[in-house]
Design a protein around this nucleic acid. Sequence first.
RNA 1: GCCCGGGUGGCGGAACUGGCAGACGCGGGGGGCUUAAACCCCCCUUCUCCUUCGGGAGAGUGUGGGUUCAAAUCCCACCCCGGGCACCA
Length: 951
Amino acid sequence: MADDTPPFRYTATLADDIELRWQDWWDEHGTFETPNETGPLADADTADARGEKLFVLDMFPYPSGAGLHVGHPLGYIGTDVYARFKRMTGHNVLHTMGFDAFGLPAEQYAVETGQHPAVTTDQNITNYRRQLRRLGLAHDQRRSVSTTDPSYYRWTQWIFNQIFNAWYDTDADCARPIDELISEFESGGRPTPNGQPWSELSAGERADIVNDHRLAYVSEAPVNWCPGLGTVVANEEVTADGRSDRGNFPVFKRNMRQWMMRITAYADRLIDDLELLDWSDAIKAMQRNWIGKSFGADVDFSVTPVDQPDTTESITVFTTRPDTLFGASFMVLSPEHPLVMGLTTPEHASTVSEYQRAAAAKKDVDRQDETRQKTGVFTGSYATNPINGDQIPVWIADYVLMGYGSGAIMAVPCGDQRDFEFARTFDLPIPAIQMPPDEWFQSHDIEPTVDTATWPEAFVGDAPYVQSANNTLALDGIGTKDEGIALVNTWLEAHHAGRPTITYKLRDWLFSRQRYWGEPFPIVYDADGRPHTLPDEMLPVELPETDSFAPRTFDPDDEFSNPESPLDRLDWWVDVELDLGDGVQRYRRDTNVMPQWAGSCWYELRYLDPTNENRFVGREVEEYWMGPQAEHRPDHPGGVDQYVGGVEHAVLHLLYARFWHKVLYDLGHLSSKEPYARLFNQGYVLAAAYKDERQIYVDAAAVSETDDGTFMLDDKSVTREWGSMGKSKKNSVSPDDMYAEYGADTLRLYEMATGPLDASRPWETRDVVGMYRFLQRLWRTMIDEDSGELIVVDDPADDDTVTVLHRTIEVVRAEMNALRFNTAIAKLIELNNHVTKLDATPREIAEPMVLMLAPLVPHVTEELWRRLGHDDTLTYETFPKADASRLVDDTIEVPVQINGKVRTRVVVPADADPAALEATALADAVVAAALDGGTPKKVIVVPGRMINVVV
RNA sequence: GCCCGGGUGGCGGAACUGGCAGACGCGGGGGGCUUAAACCCCCCUUCUCCUUCGGGAGAGUGUGGGUUCAAAUCCCACCCCGGGCACCA
């Protein structure tokens, strides 16, 4: 190529040279190594010299085989810019990056390629490290961890043991060591569940009681069985339409014996402590909704079992509207409710069992389709409504779910649309208990009446009660539900027929997976099948080597298949002889592995103290980096100062990690109550994908847009859709291509400039050139393109330029601090555009400009800083501060409006008082013409901003 | 249905606490450099209309109302888009 590009122009080639050189320099000099104050990585003097601590954290990546595309590092660049900025404003910043490398995709990728997941995972991590390093991210490499490393998961297993050896004391409202529970049982200070004295129980009975209190426990419960994946999965991993979020296979509810974690014990604290967190309302709302706390009452209805006509039992229902109890005209049980068989009379037995079978065969998806016609069958029995003694029929129906409340409801058809529809379908009575307002009747075009036969739907809302009284309670005339609820709750308690209660949607966390690539449980079972944890000195329990790592999967629709853990096949590993304190005995190892979320529940803690052999994190180290900061806020919960990641973890990782953190806090291992004090959700990089007429993706890079807005590949038109980037969509753009074409600094700048960090934005390769041109102009203001010589001059800058500089500094500082890098960049471009118009670039402008750009484009600024005559990295230079006297002008131009429209401008002294402003405006020719000799009706003066003359 | 966001030029997006809408970048147009092109540089670029070519007028931030001297910004009603939850009693 005949190329007359000037030899020292800032091109991709020069950028490449600069970037690789500085990346090596940083590594050689340990530039980004962050000292602790204590422990193995301690250098207290340096830590103090750097200033106040600041922990900046990214959600660590799962290292996939496909490598990074340009969408992945958006958040990583954002945290890097922020962390670099904070280093320059007096902070000891901890920033590193680890890998969340256990889990399904690694295993699937390994199965596809026939390589062991340990091998592919290592390769992928190596590739990720290379791609991330090439971006110039200022990470402390010494602190990088992988969840798959035995020296890491040793401590994941240790934390599991902590959770296993803990119980939740509801009186103290915190977790405590299980030994303290046992002591309470032994001393009699706490009664056993069935009241028998502890001393009379066998060792096995005692173990069962203790196991039932543990925060990690094995139970037989309905779980999500996914035959297509060959494993059970957590509620949080099931999509709304009843499929696995990994692989999109059907998921079936089955009773199985599995490990659970008692996250429900923390439901209230997980909600309440959201108040302490600087997170977006959206994420907080998602967590609150997921936990799903609702206040209401349990109400007991008595029933007579068919086979024991002389006895009564009670069915408890949960309701959020106890005040509507007078309107409960029938009861509906979930088909799986344990009392259904006992309440079914012989003549209804066949229809009931048939309905139960049909309900069981239905997938959750179909069952939850609320548009479906209501179905159900009568059991033949009646229950007594405690508030009015009415005998109400007991039905079963699949719109009542066993998994929520008590699996039974009182149906109030006049006030609940589902009950209303059910009553209409089966011709059940609909007594009115509220008199809806006239407008309600008008909107339905019917006469006001309590005769619900004319009502088209249930009435939901506040309205005076009617027909709601018994001998001891009268609601009639009361107008608000809060009052009604309080009165009925009092009545229920006085008559032992119910009690206020709280229900949650949150279920305990299903914690075991029947896969290979995960943390083994540090658990063995004795001859009686009771679990024992392995003592700390036996950790880690290493994942056994095997060629046969593929899980057994099944036909995705084969609901009645059973999971087979890969570890189960390894007899040599499963059967062990150990001395756990009772002499050498034979045990069987637990053959489950932990879910992918386990490793990410505490990784930020390991970053703090990655080489600690004695503890998962040193106490003082944790306190330094994560301790509550009362000087900022008395109720500061502690935790990471700035966490950045995608919104997709709102109820998975972020909920699980908070739960583990709180357990560790309760047990005295941590000083922080919460792991992540401040959370920022970055947006996503979206990309256009194109499909041809066969609905097959075509290479997005080859598609062009015509003038009339249609998209063409060669001579065929294709359709466009927006979504995440991906190889399968043929629209992936690799950062490697961007490095080759523009360099890492340009890529960083482009990603930060396209919009606010929390907004998703489309990727447009053709737009990248704008930031490349900017860096070229920047380079050209300081370096001669032909000679390569520095052309910065030591002459003072003119007054106007200095003013522009200080205004820029003022804005850039504020914008960087608030993570608004897009506007900071715009300001810096304006400054540089100003400088390009000067005859020469003064050093007093060049140096602060380089420093301000350093967090964004670290390589080219290091190079310029060096050429400006400095020996050391600019990483720890002080970020420029604005001179306040430069931020105010002597005179300012103020717009003058006439009747709210800008018609002219006047130049006035900056400190002009309102009267002077008004006088100046009225003297202006345009204003005088508008007034035409008259006087204005009104003049509004906003000093320094605006004058509005109303004519 | 409920809960969160959001809607501004051809495109990505700016706009402090209600005070000059469209910063910055892309794209587009014009010009320079060049034998030519690419690269690079300079100027113009919300729309419509008028113009004596200096400029001027009107409209304009999803729609319709309202508050105000003044609304992208506040209030009411509605439409559309994205995300989350959902037969949750």
